[in-house]
């Protein structure tokens, strides 16, 4: 972990201070914002995916399967359809991020409560409903996009992929506060998460209130993913990529190691990747696309090798 930590720190320093052209202060300010957004995404996506995979006892699923991205996409599309393309830029700010986060957390909490109080309550039904609702939202959003004017659609489509370097610096402190809060909750429960990982029956036998711990973990996941999506846009496979790397590198089941490791690896991949993209390939905005491509490919390879979800 020390090695990964040092590498992540080196990546951050390289990104901040190397190849500055022109005004130093201007470059540092912009780069600090970008690093802030990337650290935020690394934490939210890495930790959320790890938690989600622990409570679902599944190494292939990611929280985006719950339809978070679809809620985000639908909300953005609905706004453009209703008010035109200019509204996206006009409403950017803390209020919009908070509103979008709340909307997504409300959606997830509603889904959890409804499904866990039902008669056939179980995780697989929850996932199935999440996927189905996500697809329904996507379809509605696609329909909305069809009826848009090309210029509006162009503005909208820029929001449909994660944009790391264009995050709003105003919302970062708020997001960081939420992350610290969730981080404290999760780290304090690391031993319980280890037990949760063994599944419902064994966890219950070992004296864990399984339903309570599961709900708490899922609420943490929804807050993190919603925050991340509201700040930088949807990222489907980045968290998955980090979770796979974390399990490979850490070689342990203990969340006391896994959680910080996923954060550090996330920072390393994002900031290191952004550095290479900017200064080797001169393609500033492409990192998320590349990450989604690599993550998606790893996902498919794992799925095909395992042969089952």
């Amino acid at each position: 972990m020390a090695v990964v930590g040092v590498l992540a720190a080196v990546a951050v320093l390289c990104y901040l201070f190397l190849f500055v052209r022109g005004s130093f202060e201007f470059a540092i300010e912009r780069r600090l914002t970008a690093v802030g957004a990337m650290v935020l995404v690394a934490f939210t996506q890495g930790v959320a995916t790890l938690l989600f995979q622990t409570v679902t006892q599944n190494r292939v699923l990611t929280p985006s399967i719950m339809g978070f991205d679809s809620v985000y996409t639908l909300a953005q599309t609905a706004m453009v359809v209703a008010f035109g393309g200019g509204v996206l830029a006009a409403t950017d700010g803390v209020g919009k991020v908070v509103a979008q986060t709340l909307l997504m957390v409300a959606f997830a909490t509603f889904l959890f409560r409804w499904l866990f109080s039902g008669r056939h309550a179980n995780l697989h039904v929850l996932l199935l409903v999440g996927v189905a609702i996500g697809m329904a939202f996507d379809s509605v959003a696609t329909f909305g996009q069809r009826v848009l004017a090309p210029a509006d659609y162009d503005l909208l489509s820029a929001r449909m992929f994660g944009r790391l370097t264009a995050a709003d610096p105003q919302v970062l402190p708020l997001a960081a506060g939420v992350c610290v809060l969730v981080g404290v909750v999760v780290v304090r429960r690391h031993a319980r998460l280890d037990v949760l990982h063994l599944g419902r029956d064994v966890a219950t036998n070992l004296g864990l209130d399984h339903r309570r711990e599961l709900t708490l973990a899922l609420v943490c996941v929804s807050v993190l993913v919603a925050m991340s999506t509201a700040v930088v846009g949807p990222l489907t496979f980045f968290g998955f990529l980090v979770a796979v790397l974390t399990h490979q590198v850490a070689g342990t089941h203990r969340h006391a190691v896994l959680l910080p490791m996923s954060f550090l690896l996330g920072v390393l991949v994002l900031v290191g990747g952004q550095f290479v993209m900017e200064h080797v390939f001169y393609a500033t905005g492409m990192l998320t696309v590349v990450l989604e491509f690599v993550g998606g490919t790893v996902f498919l390879v794992l799925l095909l090798r395992k042969g089952t979800l």
Binding site: Q57, N58, D194, H197, G199, D201, N205, G207, L208
Partner: peptide
């Protein structure tokens, strides 16, 4: 659940761990 876990231990027939 934590109190009961000190008095009764139970093991299912099938156990499968992802860890």
């Amino acid at each position: 659940s934590a109190d009961v876990a000190k008095l009764v231990a139970v093991l299912r027939q099938e156990n499968h761990f992802t860890a």
